[in-house]
Write a protein that binds this DNA or RNA. Structure first.
Length: 472
RNA sequence: GGCGACAUAGCCAAGUGGUAAGGCACGGGUCUGCAACACCCUUAUCACCAGUUCAAAUCUGGUUGUCGCCUCCA
């Protein structure tokens, strides 16, 4: 098929025509969450945009197979052996076993994804499912001379590669490593950029998850899992690898090092990186302790899809600053949009030519390096266009295959589920009373009733569809 | 210290050489007993300086500011 998708490739730092290895098919890999805690909405920004990428590829006609790993072992808070395993730290914090933690937060992650309409990848693979594959690959790397054993751990020898820093320019290379002074060094390493493939020795010996290996009882390093899991499901080639920008170095750099050393050839052609969600003080991060989750947004009264729309109106390669002001803005935008679409009359003629015109506009926006902001503009363009409501509805349904904003699900419910039956009965009675007063043109009484309800925290609105009420 | 990204109206944001999309908010108006809803109208010369060009938000150089990466991070 013809090249329909243009996408920024971190490897070349340019927007390229996307050409998959196999015509019409896309092998797409996503670095999944480390399931030691809830995902914060910054994490979820990446998954939302990757979801849009997957759906856009499908929209323009590709057959996409998507794989995601779940990091449930091996992700240290530092690569030096002084670090603490994230999973173990989570388990300690909550007095549960590591596997209980992993299961709990994996479920929580997918629950959040569901709320945000993020499609579950075709394959979801926990790292702990693939220990034998990790061991096989590490053995092969040792055999080929790309790895060495030191201090009872296995390390990858980055000096064996001509081009370890796949994502960096030549001038950066000499300066990258070990500049940060808060980094503690692992003295077993031959080179500063070497990294661990398999641990048997570390300072946290109470590690719960350990496996037999040719190098002793231990557990895998973080980077090896993505290389192995992708090859388990895609073989030695894949098309797009996704993740947040913070994964570029070292995680993705190390993945490329291992994978290409192992296969002896180019591994993945396109690297898709989503930029960070920041707040006023900078990057949102779990290690700062305080972070925002989807549940928290819901508690504050925001529909999860308001956050999705917040992400879509920005570009994935721009840092995005989160604020409640913008969320409030977006909340209005989203409610108005849903309401406007809900008012369309399906019982009108369908105009295939018009449908095709706007569908192409939308496709162009989305295939231009995921210009989601422009895609949303096309939504508004359609709603304002001189075409039949039924055509508009068909277009909304079509666009929603990518946007996943529940565009045609009707107006947003304003009734608050938290209101108890007694209050509801009272409110409904008052509404009837007010209706009667209005009928008798007793507007003073009608306004009085509205005031009474307001005192109880209930706001009345006379809309075209009848009286609506909600919590203030 | 090195590397990189970004800087467009009150806010979010598109636009990569031809005279500034869209959304929200504000203001004005129509409608309705009022309010709200809905609908209509209105709002910028693109951080700063210099240069290239017939023409620059868009290219080049510099300045300032914000942010990110340099083995915890999506």
């Amino acid at each position: 098929m013809e090249n329909k998708m243009q996408i920024f490739n971190t490897l070349t730092r340019t927007v390229e025509n996307f050409v998959p290895n196999e015509d019409g098919k896309v092998a797409m890999y996503t670095c999944g969450p480390t399931v030691y805690h809830f995902a914060h909405i910054g994490n979820l920004r990446s998954y939302i945009m990757e979801d849009v990428l997957e759906k856009s590829l499908r929209y323009v006609g590709y057959d996409v197979k998507r794989v995601m790993n779940i990091t449930d072992v091996g992700h240290l808070s530092s690569d030096a052996d002084t670090g603490e395993d994230k999973m173990l730290a989570g388990a300690k914090r909550e007095k549960k076993t590591v596997m209980q933690i992993a299961q709990f937060y994996t479920d929580a992650f997918f629950a959040d994804c569901e709320k945000l309409k993020i499609k579950r990848p075709d394959v979801v693979e926990p790292a702990t499912n693939c220990i034998s594959e990790f061991i096989e690959m590490i053995e092969a790397l040792l055999e080929k001379g790309y790895a060495y054993v030191a201090g009872e751990n296995v390390y990858f020898d980055t000096s064996k590669l001509d081009d370890y820093y796949a994502f960096s320019s030549q001038t950066e290379k000499e300066l990258m490593i070990g500049v940060r002074d808060d980094v503690e060094e692992d003295t077993n390493k031959r080179g500063k950029s070497d990294f661990v493939l398999w641990f048997t020795k570390s300072k946290f010996d109470n590690q719960e998850l350990k496996w037999e290996s040719p190098w002793g009882v231990g557990y895998p390093g973080w980077h090896i899992e993505c290389s192995c899991i992708s090859m388990k499901h895609f073989g030695e080639y894949m098309d797009i690898h996704c993740g947040g920008v913070d994964n570029i170095f070292p995680h993705h750099t190390n993945e490329i090092a291992q994978s290409e050393a192992y296969t002896g050839h180019k591994w993945c052609n396109y690297w898709f990186h989503v930029h960070h969600l920041n707040d006023k003080s900078g990057k949102m991060s779990k290690s700062k302790g305080d972070f925002l989750t989807v549940s928290l947004l819901e508690e504050k009264g925001y529909h999860p899809l308001v956050y999705r729309m917040f992400c879509l109106q920005s570009h994935y390669r721009k840092p995005l600053e989160f604020s409640y002001d913008v969320m409030d803005n977006m909340e209005n935008t989203y409610a108005k949009l849903r309401k406007s679409i809900a008012g369309l009359n399906e019982d009108t003629a369908f105009e295939p030519d018009q449908f095709a015109i706007y569908k192409e506009k939308f496709e162009n926006a989305v295939s231009n390096d995921l210009n989601t902001s422009m895609a949303l503009t096309v939504v508004y363009e359609v709603l304002k266009a001189e075409i039949s409501d039924n055509t508009k509805l068909a277009l909304m349904r079509s666009f929603d295959e990518v946007l996943s904003l529940d565009l045609t699900a009707g107006a947003l419910e304003t009734e608050d589920a938290g209101i108890d039956a007694e209050l509801e009965a009272y409110v409904l009675a008052k509404i009837e009373e007010r209706k009667a007063a209005k009928k008798e043109k007793n507007f003073a009484r009608a306004d009085e009733i509205r005031g009474e309800l307001l005192d109880k925290g209930i706001v009345l609105e006379d809309t075209r569809e009848g009286v609506k009420w909600k919590k203030a």
